[in-house]
């Protein structure tokens, strides 16, 4: 463990004060094992209290601290600075309105999630104990349930940038997660929602979402399965 000098260039924006976002460079010394979040904390605590960003769990599960570092969407808490060298360029996720500095407005993101009815829809009566679900049936949705809703995928999606009405990879992945759950009876309702120009069909299999996902979920693959399911359903 040793101290190193780094240069962190951060996109700043304070509503009411700044007309538009601008860059600010912080030349600081940090431990070489620091994460991006450690750097932000160091700046916020020791140099400039006005810096704003989201963070909570520090262990890559809450999804608060997704941001763009040197052009890549990452979770600040789990990303060591040595991945990028001594020059850091930190900016908020693309495609969302900035509230302040690195904190963006995620309300539209969560609103889209709600649109796909992210809950089991059941026609059958509830059993006394649990529903029987085989390990193989669970396997179909297992990985998709790891999504932490950090929005790194949607912010990396070129189809999402120009079109704010597109559901985006996270909401579509959630649709997949319920449509392919062996316990669910609501596939038809959800398929009707995602079978839309602003739904699954705006995905052009670009794979950016998959590359950005900090949980390494094969989003594009699941979206492709979803497309096939929708077509099968309408044939």
């Amino acid at each position: 463990m040793a101290m190193i000098d780094i240069s962190a260039k951060i996109l700043r924006y304070q509503p009411g004060k700044d007309e538009k976002p601008h860059w600010q460079v912080f030349d600081i010394a940090v431990e070489d094992e620091s994460t991006i979040l450690d750097v932000l904390n160091e700046i916020h605590w020791q140099h400039d209290g006005t810096l704003a960003y989201r963070r909570s769990c520090r262990s890559s599960i809450c999804g608060s601290c997704a941001m763009k570092v040197n052009g890549r969407n990452v979770l600040a808490c789990e990303t060591p600075i040595h991945r990028f060298g001594r020059k850091l360029k930190i900016e908020p996720l693309s495609g969302f309105d900035i509230i302040k500095d690195l904190a963006v407005d995620l309300d539209p993101f969560f609103a889209k999630l709600k649109r796909i009815k992210p809950y089991l829809l059941l026609d059958k009566p509830l059993p006394d104990k649990e529903f029987v679900q085989s390990p193989a049936q669970l396997e179909a949705i297992g990985e998709s349930t790891l999504c932490i809703l950090c929005a790194a995928c949607s912010a990396a999606c070129p189809s999402s940038w120009p079109n704010s009405e597109y559901l985006g990879p996270a909401a579509l992945l959630k649709a997949y997660r319920f449509i392919f759950d062996s316990r669910d009876d609501g596939a038809d309702q959800r398929i009707e929602i995602v079978n839309d120009k602003n739904g699954v069909w705006r995905c052009h299999t670009i794979f950016n979402c998959m590359e950005a996902c900090p949980k390494k979920i094969k989003i594009t693959e699941y979206l492709s399965r979803l497309k096939v399911k929708v077509v099968e359903n309408s044939l």
């Binding site: 104990k129 669970l138 759950d181």
Partner: peptide, 20 residues
């Protein structure tokens, strides 16, 4: 509480015979 969660759709890991 656990059965309720399962009925809400929680993806519990399963035994070979499909129980929690």
């Amino acid at each position: 509480t656990v059965y309720e969660f399962e009925h809400m759709g929680v993806p519990f890991s399963r035994t070979e015979d499909g129980r929690i």
